[in-house]
Nucleic acid binder design. Sequence first.
DNA 1: TCTTTCGGTCAACGCGTGTAGAGTGAAGCT
DNA 2: AGCTTCACTCTACACGCGTTGACCGAAAGA
Lengths: 175, 175
Amino acid sequence: MAAARRQFGELGYERTSIRGLASEAGIDPALVMQLFGNKEQLFSTAATSGIDLQALTSATADNLAEAAAAHLFADFEDPERRTAAEALLRSCLTHPAAAAALREQVMAPAQSAVAATIGGDDSELRAAVLNACTLGVTIARYLLRDPVLADADRQDLERVLRPALEAVIAANSRS
Amino acid sequence: MAAARRQFGELGYERTSIRGLASEAGIDPALVMQLFGNKEQLFSTAATSGIDLQALTSATADNLAEAAAAHLFADFEDPERRTAAEALLRSCLTHPAAAAALREQVMAPAQSAVAATIGGDDSELRAAVLNACTLGVTIARYLLRDPVLADADRQDLERVLRPALEAVIAANSRS
DNA sequence: TCTTTCGGTCAACGCGTGTAGAGTGAAGCT
DNA sequence: AGCTTCACTCTACACGCGTTGACCGAAAGA
């Protein structure tokens, strides 16, 4: 199961084979079938478990930008939680179920939580933009491994990113 | 060739088969081999052609945020240019060559151009964050099709996003 | 007109995949 | 001890894939 998450996270859904994953785990491929029924089901249980949006929902308007930035790191700096999040993100552009899961189980709840916190005009759109920006930084840093972002200190990155998030939060009037 | 870009853009590298793409184009799969040699080569010529960073490199510090936002739309609102960009982006998380191409042929040049324009402390890091944010919005809107972002007006989206980009550009002092 | 070349097609190979079903050995119950 | 159940493995199937090399008809050159 840990092997499943690791391979899904590293290779994506399509390139991950049940045979390869089973051999990494030291078990028989057929056992994987017996336990999870399906490659699809294995993926969805591997990728959608361990998603935790509490940090976002419990934030106030004051510390929202900080919470969003911290949330970005919490999912990926901790090796335990990283694999599940990486599995979901890695396949979200090529696997329809992963895209749907990310949209409906991560982005939509996060957006409504953020929208409720910031309020004002366009709160939904601004929440969506805020999440899209953190998504972009996450992808570029941890998945795409853009050299500048991947090698940056967490503090430096947070210091640069936070003004952007705060700008989205603060611009709550139709100009 | 148009069919190749379309399928790579819609399905990603792994799910796109030469057979399927050839039948959409009404030709024989073997002809594709003969013309491009390889699935890999076909992909790289389909995905890396038509990348145009001129809008970014020729921007000044004053209109950089505007140029970056406009650049985001230019690649995806125009159906002609969209397919190539979409093909590259769709596979950038699962196909190593696509990731490398995106990093080295798109993000790195864009970052150095932006960094040169904004200058100041951490210019490289801030350029990377700026590009990551536009990348995130692009992915969420056009690839992931997040409902809020996908249905938003171009003007509304630009109005919300621009303050964020400007904040990254403007925060050019170590606090 | 005969020959060569060339754009294009056909059938096929070898491989890796997800998946199914029969089989096996140990453990637990009566 | 005998039977049942369970966790697990072995073998095999059917399929779709990228790729190849032989083949074919038409255009061009002698």
